[in-house]
Amino acid sequence: MSILVVAEHDNGSIKGATLNTIAAAQKLGGDIDVLVAGSDCQGAAQAAASIAGVAKVKVADNAAYGHQLAENTAKLIAEVGKEYGYILAPATTTGKNVMPRAGALLDVQPISDIIAVESENVFKRPIYAGNVIATVESSDAIKVITVRTTAFDPVAAEGGSAEVVTLDAAHDEGKSSFVGEELAESDRPELTAADIVISGGRGMQNGDNFELLYKVADKLGAAVGASRAAVDAGFVPNDMQVGQTGKIVAPNLYVAVGISGAIQHLAGMKDSKTIVAINKDEEAPIFQVADYGLVADLFEALPELEQSV
């Protein structure tokens, strides 16, 4: 069964999430083609061609796909994908936006956020905010799947030499247009790709106090996250949110500071290798999942931590 992986990219380069998705595709067995849909995206196409294990790269370079608007991109994916047994994309906001739309065009019930491939028809995925793992079997002829990237180790970005095929498909539905975007700027590693993540919650008390976390993060080369409580209180922007409705992370080390550990937050970080909790409330639920817990005032513990790492 041949597999189509929809690349996540910024037109110039391929994003890391694509490498994890290809790793999931390899567990299915079969030739893996990559679809790069974008505008002025030859750079991304060349990068896709050098990923290890890719058979063919199909490039649709057209202004209509510039910002991966769902209306246009889903049409393309459904058209290209109908020749494949599987269509996979990372479960990022882009993948989640476009894949169900492509699935419905193919009359398929998509499977979201898989964490394991059991066989060619059977997959595991978390439900109920990660409190339950469901094993599901698809009876659809084409499987449309999004992949939880933190559940699969990425394949190598280099070492492949796939053939690049240009598609001349240009679907412009004309019903949507890109107006603009506001991206949060950060020199720190990206949250979902970082080896170490340090997150603050309501206990941080205000946005200025996040400076204490940034200092520790910069010493450790860590990304900084936040709980929903911290985001809702306006301490930090919402793209820093870790949890069921934010980002799912699984770093080697996750440090939760002033975070009580609501189910919603745990769903986003409990697959981290080592979890550290710093909280002054020794009854906080976060201590039930933490490998190392420190009952302490974070305003004393953070500066001390910064000094000693």
Partner: peptide
């Protein structure tokens, strides 16, 4: 179209330890 074969709890984490100080952590 998709059949649930089974549901199970997620893998549980082993109980952690409390540390007494930042230095120990």
């Amino acid at each position: 179209r998709v059949k649930t074969l089974k549901v199970e709890p997620p893998a549980t984490r082993e109980a952690g330890v409390k540390v007494g100080s930042v230095a120990e952590l």
